[in-house]
Computed example of a mutant assay.
Amino acid sequence: MTQAATGEPGYVVEAADMARDGDAAIAVWRASLGHAEGRAAKFEWFYHSAPDGALLQLLRHGSDRDVVGTAGVGWRRMQANGRALLGGLLADMAVLSSHRMLGPALSLQRTTCERALADADLVYGFPNPNAVPVVKRLGYAHAGDMVLYVRPLHHAPYLARRMPGPMARVLGGFLDLATQARDHLRARWPGGRARAHWCEAMAADLALPEAGDGTPLQGVRSRATLDWRFRRNPLANFRLLQVCLPARGANGAWFVCHRAGDVLHIADMIIPDGASLAQCLAALSTTAYAMGCQSLSIECCLPAHETSELHRSGFRERQRRPIYVRWKDPGLAGTPLRFTAFDEDE
C-alpha cells in the first residue's frame, strides 16, 4: 500500500482498505465531526455504494499505526462547456483533537488532493472558515459561493417578529393571498398551467438540459446517480416533485425536496432547456403552501439568469458558503459553476 510521509515524526498517510479500516474511520468521524448516529450509514452509502466510487485516505500515527485522521474524495461525473469531466468532491476531513498539528493535517490534505488529481480533472470542496487558509496553501481557488435563499409562504410568523401579533396575522393574510395569486398566474404562463405532483421515482424518459458550449460546471444527473444521491441517502428523506409543463409533454421539471419542520428545502432542480424556472417555482410554491409549509429554501450556486429567476420568485439571500476548486488544467480556472446539494456529500 502506497504511503506518504508527513514531515512530522511518527505520522504517515496511506489509502484506506475499505473492508478493514471502516470502523477506525467511523470512530474518528464520531469523535471529530458530530452526528455520531449516522456515521456508519454514511460510510456504507458514500464509500461502498456510490455509482462512481470514492477513495479514502488515512492519517496513521505511532508504532501501532492508529488511525487518527481521514480525508475522503467522492468521484463525480461532471460537464462544462460541452466537455465531460471527472470531479473529486472532498469529504470527511477529520483529525482527532490530540493530533491537530498543521504538518500532519496539511500532508493529509495535500496527499489526498494529489492522488485525486492523478485521475480527476478537478477537486472541489466547501471548507469552513478555519480551513480556508489551508486549502489556499494547497492551490485551491475560490470559485463561487453556495448561497442560501429563502422565500416566505405564510408571512404572519415573519411579520410577528416586527409587529404585534394581531396586526401580523392580518397583514400576513393579505400577503399570503397576494403572493398565492401571483403564483397561480405564473404557473399558467407561458404555455398553459403547470401542474405539480409527488412521484416515487424519476421518470424513465427524464430529459436533462443540453451540455453545450457555454454551460457551467455541473454534475451529470443520470437516473442512477440521482437515485443514489437522494432516494438511497440514509441521512435524510427526500421526495421528488414533478412539474408537468403542457407545452413539453412528459419532459417537465423535477424538484428534489426535503421537509424539515415547516420549511420545504429544495435540494436539487432539473429544468428543461427553454422552460421558465419562475413558472416551475410558482407551481412548487403553490404545492408547498397547500402542505402548510411556512417557507421554501434552496442552497445553490447558479448562473446569473437562474439567480434572477429566484429573485423574481421571491427568494432572498440569507447566507453563503465558499466553494474552492483546484483544477488539473489551470487554464480552466474561472469556469462558472452550477451547484446544488446534488454536488455535496450529505
Rank of each mutant, 00 (worst) to 15 (best):
L235W: 13
L89A: 10
E346M: 14
L277F: 04
R77M: 11
A54H: 07
A247T: 06
G249F: 11
W228V: 14
A25K: 00
G314N: 09
R182P: 00
L264H: 12
R151E: 10
T340R: 00
A196H: 01
V263T: 13
M163T: 14
H197A: 13
S285F: 11
W327I: 12
Y324P: 05
R318T: 14
C293I: 08
H35C: 06
M202L: 15
I270H: 02
H265I: 00
E346V: 09
G191Q: 04
T307L: 05
A250L: 01
T179M: 08
S295W: 07
R321I: 01
D52K: 12
G72P: 08
L148A: 09
V95G: 03
P133V: 12
F255R: 10
R186G: 04
H184I: 04
T179G: 02
D227G: 06
L281V: 02
V67I: 08
G165E: 15
R326L: 07
V263R: 09
V134D: 04
R259T: 08
C257Q: 14
G331D: 14
V256T: 13
P104M: 02
A105K: 03
L33P: 09
A247P: 08
A341I: 00
Q3L: 01
R321S: 14
D119Y: 00
P190Q: 02
D92L: 04
M1D: 07
P127I: 08
P104Q: 05
P133H: 12
L153W: 06
L171Y: 04
G214E: 05
T2P: 02
T6D: 12
L148E: 09
D273I: 09
P234Q: 13
A236V: 02
I270Q: 04
P234N: 13
F43R: 09
L332D: 11
G214P: 08
F342H: 06
G74V: 13
P164C: 06
A131W: 04
L102F: 07
R169K: 10
P157R: 13
T307W: 01
M101L: 10
A5S: 14
Y11E: 03
L310H: 07
L235R: 15
A27T: 11
E200G: 15
T286K: 06
Y47Q: 10
N251K: 15
D64Q: 10
G314L: 07
L226F: 10
A290H: 05
D183W: 03
P129F: 05
M18H: 08
L153P: 07
M146P: 01
V263C: 12
G139Q: 11
L102Y: 05
A253P: 03
R30C: 08
L337N: 05
P216K: 11
M163A: 13
R162D: 10
P216R: 10
R193Y: 03
L148C: 06
L185C: 09
L58M: 04
G103R: 12
L332Q: 15
L59D: 01
T286P: 01
L122A: 03
E309K: 07
A40R: 15
